[in-house]
Nucleic acid binder design. Structure first.
Lengths: 204, 204
DNA sequence: GTCTATATGCGGATAGAC
DNA sequence: GTCTATCCGCATATAGAC
């Protein structure tokens, strides 16, 4: 693995574990056993490391947008959400530290906005399709609200688990479950048992 | 106003506007026109300022818990939520910067946990009462999920508005509105027009 | 209570040798 | 590409005079 990639991998791990604000470039270099000067040879500033990681984050989410195209039933959605939340978890610093990132490095803001808006669009498309297929019944306004609330879970789930002791050790399936429960009241009767099954699994 | 209180007021304003992590004790002193030494005479460390502010945050939320006791109809809830979100806004650094606060100053974590759990309990009580009174129909599990999703909006609304450009200038009424829409599918028919009215106001 | 002055450390980032 | 050495600024926090 090239040094550049090792820097990105190590940065990602540290940012995820300790927060992007709390991890210094010196620290990243030290963990890799390289010198700060070497690190700055590959990235001329800390925001450039962040920018590169957010780019990878964006790329990692593309499969979710693809999977969305073939969501017709509730368990397609379940699968797509797992895909999504696993990637969100792999880059969990991104949304969790979004406020710091946009504040200290404003050049990163457009990218974060685009990424989250892309996910909102994907969710909208999925719900519109589920509704067309009869899996759920909701009017346009309701779909719009559901999409926004889904995005809230998608972007804020990580910080939320830290605030609620009960959710400390929740896996990413738990997040996907909570998205599905948002849909609960709008599901067709045929789709409902699937949700009941998941409820037994997660709400014990 | 005593110096101690001026320090707290100025700190709150700066933490809200620029983030608790980004505001230094020197900066607070400078904005007040006092010396750093003077500031440290009143608070022997930065976490002590934060601790005092989180205490005030907690106190500011007590009226919401009180108001909860007399929530019987949907517009009681609407009023209580406004009260809540206005205080959340006055101390918006608290939940927004919770991750930084708990990470850098672990002694603050228990307080933030207690505060959010108190709000979860209040919301649970309100929904149980609304259900008893026939304003909404939901089983125990549904109430539990609604309470948790409400807490998600309560704690994460601020960061969420920064991530979604469309919500940049949303007022605290918008947050209250989104809590009510969570209840939408469970409302009794008599209560529904109220929500429709609000939807016209916020979802134009 | 309030000030000036300062200790101490760490952050991002660079220069220049190898 | 990688290193050593270092600059500069800012952070928290303290000492001691007024």
């Amino acid at each position: 693995m090239k040094t550049r990639d090792r820097i990105l991998a190590q940065s990602l791990a540290l940012f995820n574990d300790e927060g992007a604000a709390a991890v210094s470039t010196n620290r990243i270099a030290a963990e890799l056993g390289i010198s700060p000067g070497n690190l700055y040879y590959h990235f001329k500033s800390k925001p450039q490391i962040l920018e590169a990681l957010l780019k990878r984050f964006d790329d990692a989410l593309a499969p979710f947008a693809d999977a969305a195209a073939s969501v017709h039933e509730l368990d397609d959605l379940w699968l797509a959400l797992h895909l999504l939340f696993e990637n969100l978890n792999a880059f969990r610093f991104a949304y969790r530290d979004a406020d710091y990132l946009m504040r200290e490095h404003p050049q990163l803001a457009p990218r974060l906005h685009r990424t989250s808006m892309a996910q909102l669009a994907t969710v909208r498309r999925i719900y519109a399709e589920l509704q067309r297929g009869g899996t759920m019944r909701a009017n346009e306004q309701e779909v719009e609200l559901l999409a926004l609330h889904t995005l809230l879970v998608v972007t804020c789930w990580q910080p939320f688990t830290r605030l609620v002791p009960e959710l400390r050790d929740a896996d990413s399936g738990r997040a996907a479950y909570h998205v599905l429960t948002l849909l609960g009241p709008y599901l067709a009767d045929e789709a409902r048992p699937y949700l009941v099954y998941l409820t037994h699994k997660y709400l014990k």
